[in-house]
Write a protein that binds this DNA or RNA. Structure first.
Lengths: 137, 137
DNA sequence: TTCAATGCAAAAGTTTTGCACCTCT
DNA sequence: AGAGGTGCAAAACTTTTGCATTGAA
């Protein structure tokens, strides 16, 4: 996997500790954290980082297409460094947000594009229900 | 179509002018308005209604399953009185939120349910792109 | 050195809450 | 009459913004 510092350098963008920290944190989690969680996670190792910078950095990566914003209806955004299209699951019991990588669900709408009076640029599929952990209980 | 007053009465729930106004407003629009828009729309005819009541009323109908909350990533919720499952379109150009009623897109995930380690209760498909109006330009 | 990024605090915007008063049943 | 709904204002949250300072190239 390519280093984020290298990706930024190749594009002529500034490499800062904050950008590296945010991006790497997102790459190393499957939790789809929100800005606050990212901030709290990085606080111990980056004590001077501010929440505003986390927001600005997330927006920066979003513009670059390196990070995806996700809203599952909690009143705040979550972020995902996996920008390949994939559906998300949201457990209505524990709140866990997960990824699904099913070929069968890919580009569901693009197959129907010709029938639609709408030019699809992006799609998002969210499944709400019970995760395996919560079903066991 | 059944009157909302009758639906509430049958369930033993209180019928108030505010509830009737909010529900009927939602039934008579395809715009998927947010709380503020609902409030502003009803203000002329219901001058004493407060925004807090709009929120409480929307939550009330949501619990009853008579109204659906929709978040397309704008930082606020929209509401829809059409609670049959259907995908939504969001125009990245003009912001318009529309409905799609395509059989082919229904229960996309339920067909795959057996393959998933997840019990789907509800699903939401949002297509982002250009609406027909914006494509003409 | 220069320009952009950061950090802070304040502001903006949405949604929730507490409570007194009112209204539906 | 009583339970529950409404309206108001304040509070709680998330996210954005302005600006002085810092830091990367």
């Amino acid at each position: 996997m390519k280093e984020i510092a290298q990706i930024l350098r190749e594009k002529g963008l500034k490499v800062t500790p904050q950008r590296i920290a945010v991006y790497n944190m997102l790459c190393n989690t499957k939790e789809h954290p929100d800005a606050e969680t990212i901030y709290k996670t990085l606080e111990p190792t980056n004590p001077t980082m501010s929440l505003a910078t986390v927001y600005k950095t997330l927006d920066f990566f979003k513009q670059l297409g390196l990070v995806q914003e996700l809203n599952v209806g909690e009143g705040r955004s979550r972020y995902d460094a996996d920008v390949d299209w994939h559906p998300h699951t949201v457990c209505t019991c524990c709140g866990q947000v997960g990824d699904l990588h099913l070929e069968a669900l890919k580009n569901v709408s693009q197959k129907l594009a010709p029938e639609l009076d709408f030019e699809v640029e992006m799609e998002q599929l969210i499944l709400y229900g019970k995760c395996s952990e919560c079903r066991k209980k």
